[in-house]
Amino acid sequence: MISLNTCEHWIDTAQGKLFAQEWVPLQVQGAPIVLLHDSLGCVALWRDFPARLAQATGHRVIAYDRLGFGRSDAHPGRLRLGFVEDEARQGFTALRGYFGIGEFIVFGHSVGGGMAVACAALFAEHCVGLITESAQAFVEARTLEGIRAAELQFAEPGQLQRLERYHGGKAEWVLRAWVDNWLGEDFAAWSLDTVLPQVRCPLLSLHGDDDEFGSHAHPQRLLALAAGPGTMRLLPGCGHVPHRERAEEVLVEVVQFLR
């Protein structure tokens, strides 16, 4: 077992403070891996995966709460169309500046996977690896059906409290930011089609074949349009959260990819 140093950080931005945490092996190798969470996620909801990722790879791992999520400050308004691509210019750029990051590997889950694509595209000269997990590349009927079903679940008594455990008083904003954006008419035509050709680094796309929020058409689209070399791994019997449902397999795939 590789020993790790862990540390918490607060990053100042024009809109508020971002919370970040890092896991650093005593002997670091390669570029840092930056984790981007899903639509309802935060650093805490990665659970023990960042530590296991750092131990398995020997890379420094950094995760952060986007503005409005987890321990970061509340978002001053509502998310607008383009928020997926904008994260590369906003929170991710602030994090790179704070940590003084040059070359990096970016790993995004769900909508964080789309944001990871945007980061790899915007900083193509510095991104040496892109890993997406359950990422959406376009708006699919299956995705919208999954969101509608989740919205009904969260309307049941006590369900919003699950989000409050991680987001506090921001929980209702977090839920609405997810549901209202994806189900909005102006989001129906969204895709990563114009961003993907700017990705030049190697790409690993992980996707569960039982993902309730997207079919394997998403990783296929990612590999078809990205300019760099790509590998797709479909995980049998796996849903939307491979790093929790199939953690060992995910770690094996990532280690092999980084080699």
Rank of each mutant, 00 (worst) to 15 (best):
S215H: 08
V84Q: 00
M1L: 13
L40T: 05
A217D: 15
G114L: 09
Q256H: 10
R52N: 15
E253I: 11
L36G: 01
Q21V: 07
R52T: 01
Q21M: 11
D193G: 07
P32C: 03
K17C: 01
Q220H: 13
I101S: 02
S191V: 04
K17M: 04
L160P: 02
R60P: 05
R89W: 09
H243W: 13
R47A: 14
A44T: 12
A150W: 15
G184Y: 02
R148V: 03
A118D: 02
V24I: 15
A135K: 02
V179F: 00
T57Q: 11
G68E: 07
M1S: 14
I131C: 12
F83E: 12
A247L: 12
Q55F: 02
V117G: 11
D12Q: 13
F154D: 01
A31Q: 10
R165Q: 12
A31V: 04
H59C: 08
T143K: 08
L81M: 14
T231I: 03
L234S: 11
F123L: 00
R221H: 13
A14H: 14
G108Y: 08
N181M: 14
V174M: 02
V250C: 15
D65T: 03
A224I: 00
L18Y: 00
E103R: 06
A247E: 15
A189S: 15
E145I: 12
S215M: 05
I11C: 10
D73R: 07
S205I: 12
H109L: 14
L192D: 13
A247C: 15
E185T: 10
A94Q: 11
G230I: 01
R96I: 08
R244M: 15
Q15G: 00
E133L: 07
D73F: 10
D73N: 07
D38G: 10
L175D: 06
A31G: 07
D86V: 10
V24Y: 05
A135W: 09
D12F: 04
S3L: 11
L79G: 07
H59A: 10
S39G: 15
Q27D: 15
A149D: 13
A120F: 04
L35W: 00
V250G: 02
Q198C: 10
V179L: 00
V179P: 08
I101Y: 06
H9N: 12
V250F: 09
A224R: 09
P76M: 11
H240S: 01
A149P: 06
C238A: 01
P50W: 03
E185M: 04
Q55T: 14
A31S: 06
Q15A: 14
